[in-house]
């Protein structure tokens, strides 16, 4: 567990957490590994875990009838997999499928939600970790929506 705490201490993603809150976070974390092709999240399934990628890449996918899986974003080491655990109904919006061997830290999302409710200081700092990611992905999605490579150049 000590090494896991050290790993979390070194992750820029968790910079907003003070050391006590990082230690608390560690209690709900464990190492995880997945082979290529494995699913870390399933679209519309309860999102009871989220992950911090340490090694390998995966794709966020949406199943389109008649077209199969459509990739909407790829994630790589240092990035978070799973944001839907933050808000009701706590169900994944996408499939998250590994296309390389994955090494990650898995977090118990349900228990962390409960901790956020019980300790608002912890909850506020954890939201400070997640808000930049949410904003960045929102901006990226809007830029994709513009379809700038269509006819504008």
């Amino acid at each position: 567990m000590e090494s896991l705490e050290r790993v979390l201490m070194e992750q820029p993603f968790f910079t907003p957490l003070d050391s006590a809150h990082r230690a608390a976070l560690t209690r709900y974390a464990e190492p995880a590994q997945f082979p290529p092709g494995a699913y870390l999240l399933h679209e519309n399934a309860p999102e009871d875990r989220f992950y911090l990628l340490q090694q390998g890449r995966l794709a966020l996918q949406v199943h389109v009838p008649g077209c199969g899986a459509r990739r909407v974003q790829t994630l790589q080491p240092g990035e978070i997999v799973g944001l839907s655990w933050l808000i009701r109904p706590y169900r994944s919006s996408y499939d998250a499928q590994a296309f390389e061997p994955i090494r990650a830290i898995a977090f118990d999302a349900a228990r962390l939600r409960a901790l956020c409710g019980a300790d608002h200081d912890f909850g506020y700092e954890l939201m400070q970790c997640f808000m930049p990611v949410l904003l960045q992905r929102l901006q990226a999605a809007r830029l994709q929506l513009l379809d700038v490579y269509g006819t504008l150049l």
Partner: peptide, 23 residues
């Protein structure tokens, strides 16, 4: 290389090019 949209056969990045800068 990153693309805005891709099928499952594409093993490169998917997403806007600006997201690659920080990596």
């Amino acid at each position: 290389i990153t693309v805005d949209h891709a099928g499952a056969g594409w093993h490169g990045h998917v997403g806007v090019v600006t997201t690659l800068i920080g990596r």
